[in-house]
Every structure is written in structure tokens, then in C-alpha cells.
Design a binder for these strands. Structure first.
Lengths: 346, 346
DNA sequence: ATGTAGCACTCTAAGTGGTAGAGTGCTAAT
DNA sequence: ATTAGCACTCTACCACTTAGAGTGCTACAT
């Protein structure tokens, strides 16, 4: 038998174990792995390597005389060192394109179809986070007088999102004042991130201490209305029904836990908001998740951009036993297409 | 033993069977019912009645020597003839109030909490349909010039909802024209239902064939942009995790079916939109549902109103074995509170 | 040293048989 | 009309057995 670097063989075998387990969902035994290598390595040898891997806590046995199952740590190693990017086929890409690019101009519908696309392609639950307004760039604002105590503010971003919000004000503004404030804000804020507007104006306020002051103050009062820059923190979910086909959910308790994890909107929202900051794919495997609801499952996230600005995130959540490679490439592709579609909207 | 009208005793016993089954989820036997009546009726008598009820297809046996289970028809009879309105306790009302009235000004959040309230109070999945724009009354419109080919339209309704939509137009409008059209629409459309605007203007168009014609035509062109009056058809769901505690879902297949039913947004949307037309509670039990996805489950719906106009619907979906009385009163109460909350927003 | 065959051992999953108990329908008595 | 009694049926559960998959260890081959 060829002399192979031990370290590298361990890796290969770990990879084989992970892939086989992901595929079959049954603990994988030495024979099965040996077969995978066309019997170029005997089961006995593989058993030895497996014992090592088990010592390293990369795999474990559900019980004596069962095959091995990857641990969270095992998946982590696999994902970090062994995962090869998996390319989507033309057919797969075309399914995704159909879902994302033929959804009309309705953002709701696009988001829903994007999450559906994730779910269909990966067989786990797809999640899409609506574009974060704070990450969008100011283009235009209009303030309308509705009645004595109410103003409607409409903000348009460069990427074409529109946010409006009705505000109760104790202060009374005349139409002229509103027009002046509108004009001022439009000339002043062009190109500023919505999330930065407050600090931007505050800085301005400190610089200019002359007659301009009260005016600027008025503008700020209006803009500081809570909820004006708040995106509707909406998560789109798809695929809960089909994920129940996975053997891990034959036990209804696990199913409940999983649905609980999906309904923990706050936890997922936090995770997505955090991950969004960084470019590309992020993977959270089982106990790596801080959030207790999710600790039995894995979440893969990916941001999406509009005009090169990170503006939102998509994700997949499922059992730790998932096709990480496939999920990664699907998310990458979908985030890209979703970004393009949103650019066209704007 | 007292002589009791046969027909009425059948009813009483059917009621007892339904209630017992709803309560325990196990087929109910003659002994159990007899006990329910403090043994004033013997098990043997009850068996006779049960045989009758079975002949009438109101109850059935899962297998010989099991107790009886209500059929869809049985539930229907129960709901139509036996159900007594169940009042909510002060505590229950206060839980609901907390969820609905302390959600701030964020509609998203209110809707989500309303569906959560349904789910928590009834132990089945709660659904809330966003307010239908078409059922809202026009208050105000503003058209802005964004750039050469784009206009932003913002419509405000009397109930305080705001809808905006960016429109690509081939025709070019000057600012003056836009202002004139805006003014025209605002004076003309006050008090008209958004859903009626098109037919309203068309009628107008037929009446007035003079110089006004082109002007009116322009206005219509703008308003006929698809999606302008389209509500985001959004359904809020809550409670999928907790519903899995029901014994009907120990079989994962049933769980899958149920989640499938919940993900059939179109079907549910249709159902809610239809039911919305009629005042009050509507109940769809099992096979009464046309939609195949839902035929194993029951849906209870209730519209909600803002300023006496029906504007949306809420619902509960769960196994046919559900506490119909409780669900009805919870939906009634929540629809009322939700309406009030939305009025306050406007 | 490294790899492999053989073997005893362990544990699960699946099948079998037997029993208790819940529930029924029927009949005869009140 | 109602009910007590009884034979009958079916399930759920338990104990038991067995086949098979998989392991770890040891001794042997390279």
C-alpha cells in the first residue's frame, strides 16, 4: 500500500465520513469508508484512524458498535479545511434566476421568492432579511403637512427604497417652514448613509453656532422621530415543511426545537445583523451559536449588496448535518442575483 | 331515570364527546361520558346513542373496540348548534392588550404581536393579514418628480396607512403638471375607497368629454400604474413551534402536512380575502376546505375593522380537534382590539 | 513501523408472543 | 326505554430473541 502522509490521510477520511454522513444520515462505519476508497484502504486501518479522529473529538459514536458521526468540531474542521466550492449547474442557476428575476417589482414578492429559492436548492430553511435602511444612501426627502400636529416624511434612497413615517409633533410648523427644512435637508444630506444622518447633523450643529442654529435644530427634531430610519425588521422564511423530511426530525421534539429556533426572530435578526458587517459567507455550526435556541442547528449567512454597498443578508438554517458546500454556493449565487435584482428596482 | 327528549340527549352526548375529545385527544368511550354525567346515564345507554350518532356520521371509531372520535360533520354540528360563547377572563384580556397595545407605532410589530396573541391564547397557529389598502378610504395623494422618467406617488388613507410606489413613465410631466394633477386628485377623490378609484375616474371620464378630458386622462395614466393600490399581501404567522406539542403531530408526516398548509400562502390569502367580506367569525372544518393543503385541518377567521370599515382579517389554523369556542372568542376579542389599535395609529 | 486479517464482543433494530385493559355490541332482565 | 352482564375484539405494552452492523484488540505480514 502506498505510503501516505498520515496527517493528510486523516483529513481525507474525515472528509469522507462527513460527506457520507451528510448524504445518508446514518452513522458511517469503517467498511463504508473503505468501500468509498474502492478498498484501497482496509476497514481495519480506517478503524485506527477513526479512533484517532475520535480522540481529537472530530467524530463520535452515538453508542458502541455504531458507526461514527461528525461532531460540531468535525464539521468545523471540514468546513475550514476540506470544503471544496461546489459549482451550480446551469439548470440550478436558471431555477434561481426564474424565481428572483421574474417576481415583478414587488419587493415583498422578490424577498419571498429569494427565500424560497434558498430552500428549494438547499433543502433547508431559507431566510431573507429585508434591506437595512441605515445602510442605504440618502437621496431625497419630502415632508408634508397632514394636519396641525402631524407630518408625513418620505425618504428616498439612492437604491430606490422609500420609507415613510407619520410623525406627531408638539411643535407646529408652517408650510413655509416645512418647505425650507425640506430644501435644506435635501441639499445637505445628499450621499450620506441614513444611519449616519443623526451624527452628521449633530456635528454640523456643533460647528455652526450662529443664526442657523435654531433652524438646524428644527430639522433635527423632525428627523429624530423614532422609527424614521427604522427598517421593518422583517425576515422571510421558506421551507419549514420540506425540512421535516430530514430524518433528524422524525422525533417531533427536535422538530419543535427547530421551529422554535425559526420563530426566535430576535436571535436570528441579531445574528444576521452582525454577520452582515463582514463580506461573504459565515457559518455557525451547532454549539458555536451563542443563542441557545439555535445551538442544535447550523446557520449559514451571506450578505447582499446593492451598488457595492452591503445592505442586507440572506441565510440558511437547518440541522448541523447539511451540505455546507452546496449551501455556500447557493447563498453566494442568490445574494448576487438578489443584489442585481434590487439594483434594477431602484 | 328521567324521561328526556331523545333528540336533545343525542345533542348533549355529542357535545360531551366533542368536548372530551378536544380536551384529551384520545377516543372517548361510553364509560367516560357516563362519568361526565355523574353516572346519571349508564354506559350501555350511551353506547346505544353513540351507535346512532355513528350512523349519522357525526362520530366514528378509529378501530373496533376503540372509543369514538368526532368527524368533521360532528364538529360542524357542534359548532353550529351546541357551541356556547366562552368569555375571556380579565387576565386573558390583559395579556392580549399588553401584546397589542404596547407595540409602539410599528405596524409590523403590532401585526406580529397580534398573531402571537392568537397563538398564545388558543394554542394553535395565529395568522394576521395586513390591512387591505383597497378597503381604505382615500385621504391625500402627493406626486413627486424624482427624475425625468420617474415619479414617486404617496397615498395616505383616512386610517393613516401610507402607500408609496415609484413609477416609470414614458410620458414626461413638468412639475407644474404634477402639481395640478395632485391638486385635482386630492379635491376629487376625497372619501373614495382606494379600490374604487379606477372605476370612479373612468365614470368621470365618460361624463366629461370637454377640455378637461386630456387632463383627466393623464391623472388616470398615473394612477393606473400596477401596484399602486396593491397591498403587500403579507401574512404574519406565529405558533408553529408550540402547535407541535399537540398529539396529532407525533407523526411527523402530519406535521409536514400542517407546515405545508401554513406555507400555502396563496390558499390562505384567498380564504382570508373571501371570508373578509362577511362580518364576524367564519369556521372551516377539515374537508369543508376546498384547498387541498388545508383539508386535514381547521381554519377559523374573523375580519377586523378600522373606523367601521372592514379592512383585514385574522385567523387561527390548527388540527380539526381545536377549542372552537375559545378560538372564536379570542379572535373576536383580538380583532376588536387590533382595530382599535390601528385607529389610534391613523 | 505500518497495515491487515481474524475474532470476540457489544449494541441496536426488528420481529415474536403473550397479556392486560379498554371498549364494544348483543341479549336478557327490569 | 333502560340497564346489567357477558363474550368478543383490538391495541398497547412488555419481555424475549435474533440478525447484523460495527467495533477494538491481538497477532501476523510487509
Amino acid at each position: 500500500m502506498k505510503h501516505v502522509d498520515m496527517e493528510s490521510r486523516r483529513k481525507t477520511i474525515l472528509g469522507a465520513i462527513v460527506e457520507s454522513y451528510v448524504d445518508t444520515a446514518t452513522p458511517v462505519g469503517s467498511r463504508a469508508i473503505s468501500q468509498r476508497f474502492r478498498y484501497t484502504i482496509s476497514p481495519a486501518t480506517i478503524r485506527n484512524v477513526m479512533a484517532d479522529l475520535e480522540e481529537m473529538e472530530l467524530i463520535m459514536q452515538p453508542h458502541t458498535s455504531a458507526g461514527r458521526v461528525p461532531t460540531d468540531k468535525g464539521y468545523r474542521f471540514y468546513v475550514d479545511s476540506l470544503l471544496e466550492p461546489k459549482h451550480l449547474t446551469k439548470e440550478e442557476e436558471s431555477i434561481i434566476n426564474k424565481l428572483i428575476h421574474h417576481s415583478g417589482n414587488d419587493i415583498e414578492y422578490i424577498m419571498q421568492n429569494a427565500s424560497k429559492a434558498i430552500s428549494i436548492m438547499t433543502n433547508v430553511v431559507g431566510i431573507v432579511l429585508t434591506p437595512r435602511l441605515k445602510r442605504s444612501i440618502f437621496k431625497h426627502i419630502e415632508l408634508f403637512y397632514i394636519d396641525d400636529s402631524k407630518i408625513l416624511a418620505v425618504i428616498i434612497t439612492t437604491s430606490g427604497f422609500v420609507k415613510n413615517s407619520i410623525m406627531d409633533l408638539e411643535e407646529h410648523f408652517t408650510k413655509q417652514e416645512l418647505t425650507r427644512i425640506t430644501e435644506f435637508l435635501n441639499s445637505e444630506l445628499e450621499g450620506v448613509f441614513l444611519g449616519d444622518i443623526k451624527s452628521y447633523l449633530t456635528r454640523k450643529l456643533l460647528e455652526e453656532r450662529d443664526s442657523f442654529y435654531t433652524f438646524l435644530k428644527q430639522a433635527m427634531d423632525i428627523l429624530s422621530i423614532p422609527g424614521l430610519f427604522k427598517t421593518d425588521d422583517h425576515l422571510y422564511f421558506e421551507g419549514a415543511a420540506c425540512i421535516m423530511a430530514h430524518p433528524e426530525f422524525t422525533d417531533v421534539k427536535k422538530a419543535r426545537l427547530f421551529l422554535g429556533a425559526c420563530e426566535d426572530k430576535k436571535g436570528l435578526l441579531n445574528l444576521l445583523n452582525e454577520d452582515m458587517e463582514f463580506e461573504g459567507i459565515k457559518i455557525h455550526i451547532g454549539k458555536e451559536n451563542i443563542n441557545s435556541e439555535i445551538r442544535d442547528f447550523s446557520v449559514v449567512t451571506c450578505n447582499y449588496k446593492v451598488n457595492d454597498t452591503i445592505i442586507g443578508a440572506i441565510a440558511a438554517i437547518g440541522p448541523t448535518r447539511m451540505e455546507y458546500g452546496k449551501v455556500m454556493s447557493v447563498l453566494k449565487y442568490i445574494s448576487h442575483e438578489l443584489g442585481k435584482e434590487l439594483e434594477n428596482l431602484g
